[in-house]
Each structure stands twice: as C-alpha cells, then as structure tokens.
Design a protein around this nucleic acid. Structure first.
Length: 376
RNA sequence: GCAGGGAUGGCGGAGCGGUCAAACGCACCAGACUGUAAAUCUGGCCACGUGAGUGUACGGGGGUUCGAAUCCCUCUCCCUGCA
C-alpha cells in the first residue's frame, strides 16, 4: 500500500514540475480565455497541448522554423504535448466517417474542419511533437471505450505496445540519440510518456503496463477513458472497479517513475488519485465547465454537493439576485469583486470576459486543490 | 379616398380545410460535460395533471363545413402603390 502522497520534482528542459500537479489543457496553444500571467497567478506552472490541433492551426514545421513553441508563445515553463491518439479516437467515435479508421500502420481520419484526409502514425506524431519542441511527449496509443470487447482490448494493448516501441525509436531519432542515451542521466532531453491501455480489464492493464515498462519510459500514463459512461472514474455505485484499477496500476509502476493520469479528473478524482500514488493530471473539466457556467466551489457554497466540493450552476435563476462572491470562502486572482448575479449575466450572454472570470475561478480552485495536496 | 398586402404562442417567423397545442430561430428554465475537433450538446417552454389526458388558443365578432389558423362577411389596427 502506498497511502502516502508522493511528492517530488520532475526535471524538464523548462524547469521543474512540482508534483502532484495539475496541467490545464491549452489545446490550441492557449488555455481559452486566459493569459499566461493569469495562469501563473492561479498556480498553474505547466500546460498540455495537442499535436493535431497545433499542427492544424499553427503548423509544426512553422514552429520548428520559428524556434519552438516556448519561443513562439512566450510560455517559459514545461509543456506536454499529447500524441493525437485521443483526438483521433474522439473524432472516430463522435463523427462517423468511413475514412476514419485505425490500423496497425496508424490513424486515418478526415479533418472535420478542412475536410482533408490525414494520417497520423507513431512516427509522425513524434516528429510533430519534436518540431513543436515540447518538454514531455506522449506516444501514440489506441484508447478504447468501456463497452469495447475483449478482442478489442487485446488488439489495443498489443498495438499500443508496438506503437510505443516505434514511438520511442522515432523520439530518439529526432533527438539524434541512441537507445543507450535514453537512460543516461547526463543527457538532458525531453521526457517520454507511455500510455497504459486495457480498458476495465485488470489482466490486460497489467500486461500493457508490463510490456511498456519492458521498453522503458520516463512517465507512465493511465489511458483509455471510457467515454460513453457516466461518472467514469468513480464507479463505486456500479461496482467500484475503477478505484481498484487506479490503485492497482499505481502499485505496478516503479517508484522512481512518474504516474500520469491522462484526462483526470474532478476534484474528487484528483484527491483519490493523488492519495493512491498518481502524480500529474490534465483535464478540460475546469476550463470547459467554466465556459458552461459550472463552477467548482467549497463545501456549502454551491447547489450540488460532492465529496470534497460543491458545484454552482451559475446560469441558474437562483443566482439572479445573489450579490455574494462566487465562493464566499475564497476569491481567486482576477475575480475580485465579481458577484454571482453579474457573472450569471455574463455567462448567460456568452461574454468572453465572463468566460475568463469563470475560468480563472475554476483554475484557481484546481490550483488550490493541488497546492493543498502538495503541502499535505 | 381607391387598389393591394398583412395581423399566428414572450419576440421573429412557418403553416393556407383535417395528421396543429401549431415547423424553425431567439429569449427563457433545467441538466450534462473527465488525454477540448464542445463559447458545445440534451431536455423543457399555453393552463391544470406525475401520467394518459382535459381545457382554452392563431387580432375582435359572425358565417360556411362533419371539421377552420387555413374559406366567406364584417369590424379594428398596420404596411405598400395610386390619387
């Protein structure tokens, strides 16, 4: 049992990450509606961005020629790039299109905006991430949904392992390094993340983890995310399987390796995961939900209650005449003197500044959670 | 004054004899969202009822018809041509 919260530093090319840490998703190279200065004020020190979105909107070769994403954006702290695997997966499950498919070679898909055919392989994903110039890079993997069959799980796990091998090779190749260089602590390089698959199947999760550890990576991620189910990570009311799985997997990963729960999670999820040995996280919840008027507040402050927090549906009529601050127990930087009634009006009218206040609030809340966990 | 056109639910706007409590938008109400292709999506939105359903409704009044928001007459108001 590893009940103690793990704490430490991840040494990256752009400074340390003090974990446990939450990294917001800056999908298009920006955390929507916020400035970097505001992010830092909210206690955010590292970002996640995605290869496919960056490739489409900015262009990885352009970024390479420009001097990398840090120079381009001015963000001088750690950046993690996701492989694009989840985006393709999401695209395939959300938008039926005969040309959207995954084979051993890689992922084929139609860009929903340009309508153009695209192909993403483990190698091309690494090349794009290298051109972007990120500090942490993720191998291309094949996520599944909860309802996928055992044969799909088998295929996903073996394909993810094969792709991880190819990814590592491409990763080293781009850096001009050899296999042996990977484990040489004197060589400073970006960190490489492998993603464990296996859906809800313990046996295959373990197999996936073991196969990936055999190859050797810096960070091991929890992948998969059953998209189609509710309350995904806390399934105590449906058998309690995921908590068990998260605990089980954290135990499997070596102590000196970083554990990254991709796409996790709610404040309760973060508390649970950190207390069970997971180190770093990213999710769109605080930013997307902010735009939708779903605010995270301290217990007793909202209209819906969860284990460690409340939720305040700011668009609700119940806040029309509420002149109190968003959360009476704390005000996060950038949201001073904003009443619930005013924020309600702003969000209902899709105001950009309203989105900003709400985003700063939610990120402040997430920042506070992680800060407390780090000092617990 | 003459000749046309029009008045539909909070607003805009379909419908032009039955399948209309009335398309679609907006506004409004509620909810969802977990490696963001989501500033999105889902449901509700005349009244009463949990519900099946019942009752009122398409400017006012009166007709025709088994049956009208839809056809006819008339009144009120609005817009467009001509004087």
């Amino acid at each position: 049992m590893s009940d103690a919260i793990r704490k430490g530093k991840i040494d990256t090319l752009h400074g340390d990450i003090n974990y446990p840490a939450f990294m917001p998703d800056a999908t298009y190279g920006t955390v929507k509606n916020t400035s970097f200065a505001q992010l830092k004020s909210a206690g955010i020190n590292e970002l996640v961005t995605t290869t496919l979105h960056i490739e489409q909107k900015i262009g990885s070769e352009y970024l390479r020629d420009y001097g990398g994403i840090h120079k381009f954006t001015g963000w001088d702290r750690p950046i993690l790039t996701d492989s694009g695997g989840f985006q393709v997966f999401s695209l395939i499950h959300r938008r039926a299109n005969k040309q959207n498919k995954i084979t051993d070679a890689g992922c084929s898909f139609i860009d929903p905006i340009t309508g153009k055919y695209n192909f993403l392989s483990p190698e091309s994903s690494q090349i794009i991430q290298h051109n972007i110039g990120s500090d942490m890079r993720v191998v291309l993997d094949e996520p599944l949904i909860e309802s996928d069959s055992l044969s799909s799980i088998k295929r996903s796990v073996s394909r993810t392992t094969e792709w991880a091998k190819r990814s590592k090779k491409a990763f080293l190749n781009e850096l001009g390094l050899s296999e042996n260089d990977f484990d040489n602590p004197d060589i400073k390089r970006p960190l490489l993340v492998a993603v464990i698959q296996g859906a809800n199947n313990m046996e295959y999760r373990k197999r996936s983890a073991m196969e990936l550890m055999e190859i050797g990576f810096d960070i091991y991620g929890l992948g998969g995310m059953p998209l189609k189910t509710k309350k995904t990570w806390d399934l105590t009311d449906q058998g309690g399987f995921h908590k068990e799985l998260l605990h089980f997997l954290a135990e499997l990963i070596p102590q000196d390796k970083i554990r990254y729960a991709l796409g996790v999670g709610t404040p309760d999820d973060l508390n649970f995961c950190v207390n069970n040995g997971w180190d770093i996280f990213d999710t769109v919840l605080p930013t997307r939900n902010a735009r939708h008027g779903y605010l995270y507040v301290h217990k007793g402050e909202g209209d819906a209650s969860f284990e460690h927090y409340d939720v305040l549906h700011i668009k609700s009529e119940r806040y029309k005449f509420d002149d109190r601050p968003i959360d009476s127990q704390i005000t996060y930087p950038g949201t001073e003197n904003i009443s619930r009634a005013y924020l309600r009006y702003l969000i209902k009218n899709k105001s950009a500044i309203g989105h900003q206040y709400a985003t700063l609030h939610n990120l402040g809340f997430y920042g506070e959670i992680m800060s407390k966990l780090r000092s617990a």
